[in-house]
Design a binder for these strands. Structure first.
Length: 258
DNA sequence: ATGGCTGAGCTACTCAGA
């Protein structure tokens, strides 16, 4: 089974790119972040024609997440945490894999910049609530798969120039510690688990020729609980969509499990 | 280099992204 996560930076502006990518990569499940549209304007028909169910938690202009799936997904939920600002950032569902019930958690973590503002505090509080909801979920199910745009650079190796981000909301130690706190609950950063020293990125800024210069960062992740490690076949970052015309600034990360 | 670009909403410009 192929599960992919991709921050598309607007599902409507990106629709041809997404449909081309689906045709090429053929995911069973696709997590989308930053769809930037309300549910009623989501392009359900485009995906239905290609054989996908769409589960959408939209928002006007900003944020918004969705799960596309070839098979029906049960127990879809949009209230994983209480979000004070009512931003659409998490959608969850359940699938079965070899008799394991797996909780799928698609996240779009707040950016948090600039540091020292209410946006940064919102990110910290959001992460605290997220971690506490994960703890609760772990008491019911030890098979969790979290994927999405975490807006966290886990370690120095995960960005082209760490010094430029050590005081940024994506790279500050305080935020990176939240990521470690999550891992310490029994999760693995699957890309790093499978690629100990590899320096690859999932995001490149639109400006300053960042893509051409490979000034990127690894901020989109798959975190799986220890129980699911035996099911992992492969994980890879697919850079091709970032090289296309009118790209998202993020590129997909692809997980094979069976 | 607190943004050089891009998208949404809207129709001139702000907000947001990372």
């Amino acid at each position: 089974m192929k599960i992919i996560s991709w921050n598309v930076n607007s599902v409507r502006a990106r629709i041809t790119n997404i449909l081309d990518y689906i045709k090429q990569s053929n995911p069973d499940i696709l997590f989308l972040q930053e769809i930037k549209t309300q549910d009623e304007n989501f392009p359900y028909e485009d995906f239905e024609k290609r054989g996908y169910h769409s589960y959408v938690y939209g928002q006007k202009s900003y944020n918004g997440v969705a799960i596309l799936s070839k098979s029906e997904i049960k127990s879809i939920s949009k209230d994983f945490i209480v979000d004070d600002l009512k931003q659409s950032r998490i959608i969850t569902g359940e699938i079965f894999l070899k008799k394991k019930k797996i909780e799928l958690i698609n996240v779009y973590v707040p950016n948090g910049n600039p540091v020292g503002t209410t946006k940064y505090d919102y990110k910290k509080n959001w992460l605290n609530k997220f971690i506490s909801s994960i703890k609760k979920k772990l008491m019911k199910n030890s098979n969790l798969l979290i994927a999405g745009d975490f807006n966290i650079i886990p370690e120095e190796i995960d960005v082209y120039d760490f010094r430029r981000y050590e005081n940024d909301a994506l790279g500050k130690l305080e935020i990176r510690k939240k990521f470690r706190e999550l891992l310490n609950l029994g999760f693995n950063d699957i890309y790093r688990l499978k690629n100990k020293d590899k320096q690859e990125y999932t995001f490149w800024d639109y400006f300053a020729g960042s893509w051409q210069k490979n000034y990127g960062m690894r901020i989109d992740h798959f975190l799986l609980t220890n129980n699911l490690i035996e099911n992992i076949k492969s994980i890879s970052i697919n850079k091709k969509p970032r090289s296309m015309i009118k790209p998202s600034d993020h590129t997909p990360i692809e997980l094979q499990i069976n």
